[in-house]
């Protein structure tokens, strides 16, 4: 229901802005009866736009196939709206179109010519999308910080070991540890041999006595 409320809000905001834009309204009227489907790939937005003589009708559900379907990420739609050369965004570079391409072109031209801050409206609408993006941003920031931490630790180790040679590199430490281990074992063997010799001496003394 929240998304329906947001859709109603977006729809009425657009229609209020269009109310004074007769050129856009008469262009939209020519598309009356057509249905455009918008699928945003990286956000939970799936809307159907039905143009009419007083603006647009937005629906989250439409029980018949749309005439034209536009698919793309929120960034691609945003760059389509804000790009100077709209055709470059429509074909190949961003938003994917299926169905009647001619209709998509017409709608895109109408949207481009309407004096509306589409980006601002979309930002208002997509409070949940913003939350989604914030989550993604947080996730990306976390991943980046992990990467930075790892890289910093590698660089620091390299600097201390190779550049200023304050710390020995890992293989040198490993070799050193191995040397200590074998020395330790040798000492233990000598200790055992000394103990054995001591016992032999003691038993020899006892037998002679």
């Amino acid at each position: 229901m929240l998304q329906t409320a947001l859709t109603i809000f977006l729809e009425s905001s657009v229609n209020k802005l269009l109310a004074t834009d007769n050129a856009t309204l008469s262009a939209l009227e020519k598309l009356s009866g057509k249905v455009f489907e918008f699928k945003i790939t990286d956000a939970p937005i799936h809307l159907f736009l039905l143009p009419h003589s007083s603006g647009i009708e937005l629906q989250q559900n439409y029980q018949h196939p749309a005439d034209t379907c536009l698919t793309g990420s929120i960034t691609e739609f945003r760059s389509l709206i804000t790009a100077d050369d709209k055709s470059s965004q429509l074909f190949g570079n961003g938003v994917n179109i299926s169905g009647d391409v001619q209709l998509a072109n017409k709608l895109q031209r109408i949207m481009a010519n309407a004096l509306i801050d589409w980006e601002g409206l979309i930002a208002n609408y997509s409070s949940d999308v913003i939350a989604h993006q914030l989550f993604n941003f947080g996730k990306a920031a976390f991943e980046q910080s992990s990467l930075t931490k790892e890289s910093l630790s590698l660089n620091l180790a390299e600097y201390l070991q190779e550049e200023i040679q304050t710390l020995p590199p890992r293989p040198q430490i490993d070799g050193f540890v191995e040397d200590i281990d074998s020395l330790n074992q040798q000492v233990e063997r000598i200790d055992a041999r000394i103990t054995a010799i001591e016992q032999k001496i003691l038993s020899a003394i006892k037998t002679t006595a």
């Binding site: 329906t4 409320a5 859709t7 009356s32 009866g33 629906q59 559900n61 439409y62």
Partner: peptide
């Protein structure tokens, strides 16, 4: 204002289309 949402949901589920 919730009656607007109820009505909007009704429209969306009606299957209404041109003609």
């Amino acid at each position: 204002g919730i009656h607007r949402i109820w009505k909007k949901l009704t429209i969306e589920q009606s299957g209404a289309r041109a003609g």
